[in-house]
Amino acid sequence: MTTPFTVNGRDVTVDAQPDTPLLTVLREDLGLLGSRFGCGLGLCGACFVRLDGHVVPACDTPLWQAEGKDVVTVEGLSEPGHAHPVQQAILDRQAAQCGFCISGIVVNAATLLDEQPDADEEDVVAALDRNLCRCGVQRRIVDAVLAARSGAASS
């Protein structure tokens, strides 16, 4: 059973069971390890990707749902070797501890700033409420996303 879709602008066709989680396909079949496995239940956000522009948990999205669609992972947010403004702001502020939640947060925040370049603190917090961070870095991350707004708008 093959499923065609695009990942980070590239056409791919994957031979896998249609109910295989998209996260498994990304990590194991396509070698895109940036989306992290946190819960497998769609509840923590560590594996967030964009599916036709919507932020979804890849662990809870079966492969068949991606057929013919456009998937963007954390690796596809910027040119290889370059940091997305949200990533750069997180590094500038050292807004991470273990970092395991960060990929999904970056995908979510970058999508928010694409749609709403002037998002305020309340908007950022509301969007990131779908992500969990266990190390307790939430406030630094919110500050980083707010600081990334000008950079995101110009990218």
Partner: peptide, 23 residues
């Protein structure tokens, strides 16, 4: 001084770094 964490670029930029990423 505040030296930026050495491990964070990999983790923030979505590169393989964790045990779960070893292949």
């Amino acid at each position: 001084t505040d030296l930026p964490r050495l491990d964070l670029p990999d983790k923030v930029l979505g590169r393989p770094r964790y045990l779960a990423d070893l292949r």
